[in-house]
Design a binder for these strands. Structure first.
Length: 341
DNA sequence: GCTGCCCCAGCTTTGAGGGA
DNA sequence: TCCCTCAAAGCTGGGGCAGC
């Protein structure tokens, strides 16, 4: 198919811009076979959306722009739009480049979106892999189960394991009761474990106040350790032992930035993806990763028996972002302060 | 030089689609 | 229904980089 000289020139400029970005990244170091868009994409699953695609968010933003006056939207569409806003915060260059697109650029943009997705999924896979081992270690240290959870396999996890079962059990049920334990394991209709219940591993000290299911929610040591492992480094999680809050989660980032114009310093994920504070979507990402690590499911998937991870991720995001009133809003803000303080 | 960490390349697994 | 092909997704070993 013939292409115009203008289109060819544009593509050439795009390629050169990409190469320039690469050179900026490398800063004279030995060349590494990575692309800018794959690298940028690594932040998407961690900070923006765990399951939806970049194209979905762009399409929702376009829809809102086109039908501004007669717009009605579902909760799903609102969540996508908030995702688009978050995406433009994480990848500030994206919105500008989308605005400059014309007909001839769409193929190029699709190729870039594909690379972003590649990076996004690769980062998710890396985190899944490292948390598989780390979560087993932390559970063994914290609860001393017998036999210990094996760090390199998952068959002994999930509801088959007493300790993983307890952590995965919906907080409103008492895992110690045999009827609950066997009901969940046999998947009887009274004990369906779905995304609509908060599992016990989300709670501070793994204890729940049955009169107030939001007390201590999303404050567990396991979550803080996992958050540190993902966004700073596994060793930072080991050093901190999960005490306190998420404060030092971002300390590495600050240190890295402080010296960014001087000597080269070791950077962490939070620094690489320019993460300045703990966000609801980052917490939701870590919650899903920990839930997956505690389960016996071998490879990443959306649905585990009756539990839908995508819906679970949406529930956590909505818990923070779609608050019904000012009182709930204040509660959520306090929780985020606890993470970021 | 050693260690820790990020992240990529390549291999393996999974699943969809089509033909016999 | 079974088998085959192919693409996508997932997993893992190791390269490269930075700190000590």
């Amino acid at each position: 198919m013939p292409t115009s000289s203008k289109a060819r020139a544009k593509r050439r400029i795009a390629v050169l811009e990409e190469e320039l970005e690469m050179i900026r990244q490398e800063k004279g170091g030995k060349q590494r076979k990575t692309t800018f868009y794959v690298s940028q994409g690594r932040a998407i699953r961690r900070l923006v959306v765990l399951y939806h695609s970049v194209e979905d968010m762009i399409a929702e933003n376009d829809r809102r722009y086109e039908f501004r006056s007669s717009l009605e939207s579902t909760a799903e569409q609102d969540r996508l739009q908030r995702g688009y806003v978050e995406l433009t915060r994480v990848l500030p260059w994206l919105h500008e480049r989308l605005g400059d697109l014309d007909q001839g650029d769409s193929e190029d943009m699709l190729r870039k979106a594909s690379n972003l997705k590649k990076g996004a999924d690769a980062a998710r896979g890396d985190d899944t892999s490292s948390l598989k081992e780390l979560v087993a270690t932390w559970v063994n240290q914290e609860f001393r189960p017998s036999p210990l959870i094996k760090s390199n396999e998952k068959y002994s996890r999930g509801f088959a394991s007493d300790i993983c079962g307890m952590l995965l059990c919906p907080a409103e049920w008492d895992w110690k009761q045999n009827s609950v334990k066997t009901g969940i394991r046999d998947r009887t209709t009274e004990y369906i474990v779905s995304e609509n219940s908060w599992p016990l591993f989300l709670y501070e000290n793994y204890q729940v106040n049955s009169d107030d299911l939001e007390e201590g929610l999303l404050k567990s040591k396991l979550l803080v350790l996992a958050f540190k492992a993902v966004f700073t480094s596994p060793s930072s999680a080991r050093e901190a032992e999960g005490d306190g809050d998420g404060a030092d989660v971002l300390e590495n980032n600050r240190r890295a930035r402080l010296r960014s114009d001087q000597t080269k310093v070791k950077t962490c994920v939070a620094s690489i993806i320019n993460m300045k504070k703990v966000t609801p979507r980052a917490i939701a990402y870590v919650v899903c990763q920990v839930r997956f690590a505690l389960s016996s499911v071998l490879s990443w998937r959306t649905v585990d028996a009756d539990f839908d991870y995508e819906a679970f991720w949406c529930n956590i995001v909505d818990f923070f972002e779609d608050t019904p009133g000012p009182v709930t809003r204040r509660k959520v803000e306090k929780l985020l302060e606890w993470w970021t303080r």
